[in-house]
């Protein structure tokens, strides 16, 4: 009852056209998916599965880029060469020390996170549960998916104190709101001006902060696996989710970052990883980020 009431209060399902926003048809598409968003055996199963890999990507990137020694005379030994050339026992010992130090550093960390295009909140929820995350804000332009997100977070009482959702375009967030982690997973391929959305995100990073994104290369394999196979043959992605001309190649993002001196000096692409969906198995990293889906980690220096 409440749902219907609240819906009718909004004359349109999405907020009016924004600089970064999406066509009405995109919005309608996601609105219609809202109710089944959290059915892990439903149309969004592939996102749920992909989320497992995203979380690994985020964790690994954050952990592996922690600064272990903040002062010169600290004791954690980070040799300037590969650990693999050391005898096993010594290597194990060093790795153990390093991991311990990382745990310790992370236990003192309290990250603020912004999840852009959060949809039903698959990533917003999981990232909220990480011990080193303090607060998560999920934003989206689709009223219905946000409602699905809010309804679902009630299924876990611990989320209430960490997670909030807002119907907002990224450029409408105050410029002074800064975040340690900003995520844009499976969003850029759905917006009309991806570089603008990306830039709005980058501008809101704290120093040392991370922007994680995932999207799809505009190539034949992507078309084949995501649109043709995914939407039409395997029916694992709802038809209408993707349009090929909106796909962005990972190298385009890199080039775009380097094009302007200021961007080039402020932001660095730390990691890019290709990934592929194998039916009946799930998602797997590949060693080729130029084909199909990819994850990218950009850091503000």
């Amino acid at each position: 009852m409440n749902r219907i009431l609240r819906r009718s209060l909004h004359s349109s399902r999405a907020v009016s056209q924004k600089l970064t926003s999406t066509s009405q048809s995109e919005m309608n598409h996601f609105n219609s998916l809202a109710s089944s968003w959290w059915d892990i055996n439903g149309p969004q199963r592939i996102l749920h599965k992909m989320n497992l890999l995203r979380m690994d990507f985020i964790q690994d990137t954050v952990r592996n880029n922690l600064k272990l020694n903040t002062t010169k005379d600290e004791e954690i030994y980070v040799p300037g060469y590969s650990l693999d050339i050391l005898p096993v026992g010594i290597k194990e010992r060093i790795v153990q020390d390093q991991e311990f130090k990382k745990d310790q550093l992370l236990s003192e960390t309290k990250f603020n996170v912004l999840d852009v295009g959060c949809g039903g909140g698959i990533l917003s929820e999981t990232i909220s549960r990480l011990p080193f995350v303090n607060k998560v804000t999920g934003i989206d332009l689709s009223v219905d998916v946000l409602e699905a997100a809010k309804l679902h977070m009630e299924k876990d009482p611990i989320l209430a104190e960490k997670l909030q959702y807002k119907l907002s375009a990224i450029e409408d967030l105050p410029k002074t709101d800064k975040f340690d982690i900003i995520t844009m997973f499976e969003v850029l391929e759905h917006v009309d001006y991806p570089s603008k959305v990306l830039l709005e995100g980058l501008k809101r990073l704290e120093n040392g902060g991370w922007l994680f994104l995932s999207t799809i290369n505009r190539d034949l394999i992507s078309w084949f696996t995501t649109i043709f196979m995914g939407e039409h043959i395997l029916k694992i992605v709802p038809i209408g989710t993707h349009t090929l001309e909106k796909y962005i190649n990972q190298i385009e993002i890199k080039n775009w970052l380097e094009k302007e001196p200021e961007r080039k000096s402020n932001y660095k692409v730390v990691d890019t990883k290709g990934c592929i969906y194998i039916p009946a198995y799930g998602w797997k990293f590949t060693n080729c980020p130029d084909i199909g889906n990819y994850f990218m980690a950009i850091r503000k220096m």
Partner: peptide
């Protein structure tokens, strides 16, 4: 599952 921030009751 915990490292991935999942709800540990989830079938995933």
């Amino acid at each position: 599952g915990m490292q991935r921030g999942m709800d540990i009751g989830s079938p995933l």
